[in-house]
């Protein structure tokens, strides 16, 4: 066994053991095997399947190779192109709503008064609620006949009384987004409050002395200093929004029409309703490419922040 290297005053997080070491592989191998079995194997298997024709309804084993057919088919498939559009719109709506609300909540709760401290302690709860339950509760609360939120909105804005929130293209998408934003905006707020706390108060005070208004301070000082955090949380939310599925099943089933048929939901239908495994694999690989891009940016940013 190799000797520990010479001790330094601050050695937190320093790898200490070098050279070959049987214990290292004994500890590492089980986790790598499981990741290999549960992530790498399906990833490779889907990739191969994406080049085959496989109607599971006809045969339990995959059919012949069809080259790039499944991929070229996607770009003439109305359903796929629609789901791409829906997902892009969904990402845009849910990310911007989460950011705006989260920023608002953070600025409001950043002063450490007693009420604010109490409010901050509550911010984690919505996020931890099961997505299925988020879907059911927002569907219940926005029911045009007996939903409590629908009634509140109808009282404040009378033309929206009895509005079918899940019955129109954009409002259905907005409702789906809100059921997620309810969890994300408070979480964003928590992250922003942490970042706001690291902005030295001298900076904003100096600006105030120089005659800057609150609005100016926000745009010129607070927001630029928050920008790195905004970037990271936006990436995280984009990745999550690309996987929007649970509430689509619970709240809209993809409707009205196919207005809320997200990419994830569309792949689910191809694979587990139509049992068209080859084509579903190809479309899911297109998702992997998009997701991989954002995941790469996310991991790179986080790891850069560590070192």
């Amino acid at each position: 066994m190799d000797l520990p290297q010479k001790s330094s005053a601050r050695s937190v997080g320093k790898p200490r053991r070098t050279g070959s070491n049987p214990l290292r592989w004994a500890l590492l191998t089980p986790a790598l095997l499981v990741i290999g079995l549960t992530v790498i194997y399906p990833l490779l298997s889907s990739f191969v399947t994406s080049f085959r024709n496989w109607q599971l309804i006809n045969s339990p084993s995959p059919g012949g190779f069809v080259g790039l057919d499944n991929y070229t088919r996607a770009f003439t498939d109305e359903g796929f192109l629609n789901s791409l559009k829906v997902s892009a719109l969904y990402v845009l709506v849910s990310v911007s709503l989460s950011l705006i609300l989260g920023l608002g909540i953070a600025l409001l709760l950043s002063k450490p008064t007693r009420l604010n401290t109490f409010a901050r302690a509550l911010l984690i709860f919505p996020f931890a609620v099961a997505p299925v339950l988020k879907g059911f509760s927002w569907r219940f609360m926005l029911n045009p006949e007996y939903g409590v939120y629908a009634k509140m909105v109808g009282t404040v804005i009378p033309p929206l009384k009895g509005y079918l929130w899940l019955g129109h293209d954009f409002s259905a998408l907005l409702t789906l987004a809100m059921s997620e934003v309810w969890g994300w905006a408070p979480l964003f707020a928590l992250m922003f409050i942490g970042a706001l706390g690291s902005i030295p108060s001298e900076i904003t005070e100096a600006a105030r002395v120089d005659g800057a208004t609150g609005w100016h301070i926000f745009w010129r000082i607070t927001l630029p200093l928050l920008a790195p955090v905004v970037y990271i949380v936006a990436l995280l939310k984009i990745i999550s929004a690309l996987k929007m599925f649970d509430q689509v099943v619970i709240m809209t089933g993809g409707g009205p029409g196919n207005a809320t048929q997200t990419l994830y939901y569309y792949i689910y239908q191809l694979a587990f309703r139509n049992l068209d495994m080859g084509y579903a694999s190809a479309v899911s690989y297109l998702l992997v490419v998009v997701m991989g891009l954002f995941a790469f940016l996310y991991v790179r940013t986080l790891l850069r922040g560590r070192s």
Binding site: L43, S46, A271, G292, L303
Partner: peptide, 19 residues
């Protein structure tokens, strides 16, 4: 590499395991 596997979408994992 381990971090990146985190972002493999569940549908991709589900298709081979389902069959």
């Amino acid at each position: 590499a381990i971090l990146v596997t985190q972002f493999v979408p569940a549908v991709v994992v589900a298709i081979p395991f389902f069959t």
